[in-house]
């Protein structure tokens, strides 16, 4: 009897189809780069890759969590910036390193909690809320960093710098930390009911509530998580580069957003994985790196990354239409409204 049941492949049942595709593309990209540009495998380049990957991945974990429940957070870049500044200011005020670290994280958690309250409690659209908070936070950064602080904070105690600069066996500690975090999140998603309930919630919110999953509180805590992770990335990066200025995290939200979509997330919710967040971040970071190595003008980076995003979304949209039984002629043909007999 069992032999008549069509078995589901692992990639399909684990919902890792798009993730594995992205990983494959990343691998191809890496191989191609190492052939085309010898500088790619250079120690300096690999080190700067790791430094770029770590904060992006940490932020993407939060964003992917929100993607799963059909939400997103555009304030992450600004939160990253303001959290680094908060830590720097605490240090300048003479506070010990752990307190300064926590001050930065708390800033992010608070902003995340505000986003969460607005969305989960008051039911305001998450695009509007987080876009508004993005502007507000950027504005606060401008206010704080005016006058004599225009150049940013640069002198930190060595203990703080160490937070971002430790290494293990020649690999960046931050990068390893971000990877471990990613593995931990993936395990949580796959193995625990709380993790699964994110996907249940994204797949069918009403049905999930009817089966006892708490929608509002889950939403709230996902936004808090996203804020906290963005702050963590911000503080660690401030420690890494030894500087807190008003440019940190600028435009990052779009990069992360795109990485999550390419890595298998969907703004409709119910889809995505942290492995996919890793794949997407790898892809976006490698692509940026490729442009730098091949000295393509930076303007073109945005064009290509945007084009890849549009391609992914268009292919996805076409597949959805095909699934609903629309013939190819009505999707791509010149007369979409024509009836085919």
């Amino acid at each position: 009897m069992t032999d008549t049941i069509r078995k589901t492949s692992f990639l399909r049942s684990a919902r890792l189809e798009q993730e594995s595709l992205t990983f494959g593309v990343v691998l191809l990209l890496a191989v191609a780069l190492s052939v085309v540009s010898p500088a790619f495998l250079d120690g300096n380049n690999l080190a700067s890759l790791q430094t770029a990957l770590a904060p992006n991945l940490i932020v993407a974990l939060g964003m992917m969590t929100l993607f799963m429940i059909g939400r997103f957070d555009l304030s992450v870049g600004a939160v990253m910036g303001i959290s680094g500044i908060a830590s720097a200011m605490a240090l300048e005020a003479g506070m010990p390193v752990p307190v300064a670290f926590l001050a930065g994280i708390a800033t992010g958690l608070l902003i995340g909690a505000f986003n969460g309250l607005m969305v989960a409690r008051l039911g305001i659209n998450h695009l509007i809320v987080t876009l508004g908070v993005l502007y507000m936070t950027r504005g606060v950064i401008e206010v704080v960093m005016s006058g004599e602080k225009l150049a940013g904070f640069t002198s930190f105690p060595p203990a703080f710098n160490l937070l971002g600069q430790w290494e293990v066996g020649g690999l960046s500690g931050l990068f390893l930390f971000a990877l471990l975090l990613c593995i931990g999140f993936e395990a949580f998603l796959r193995l625990t009911f709380r993790g699964r309930s994110l996907l249940f919630l994204g797949g069918n919110p009403q049905a999930a509530e009817a089966t006892g999953i708490r929608r509002r509180s889950t939403e709230f805590w996902c936004f808090v998580l996203s804020g906290g992770l963005a702050a963590l990335a911000g503080v660690l990066m401030t420690a890494r580069v030894g500087m807190a200025n008003r440019y940190m995290g600028e435009g990052l939200e779009m990069q992360i957003f795109i990485a999550c979509l390419i890595g298998g997330g969907s703004i409709a919710g119910g889809k995505g994985s942290y492995a996919g967040a890793l794949a997407g971040v790898l892809f976006v970071t490698l692509l940026t790196n490729a442009f730098n190595l091949l000295s393509v003008p930076s303007e073109w980076q945005a064009v290509v990354i945007g084009a890849v995003l549009v391609l992914v979304v268009v292919v996805d949209g076409i597949m959805v239409l095909r699934k609903s039984g629309r013939p190819w002629s009505s999707i791509l043909g010149p007369f979409p409204n024509r009836l085919s007999a």
Binding site: L199, G202, A210
Partner: peptide, 20 residues
Amino acid sequence: LAVFPNMSVAENIFVGRMPR
């Protein structure tokens, strides 16, 4: 229908009462 099209058949049957 009040199902979860994104989840497996088994998870759909046992949502809310997952064996742990």
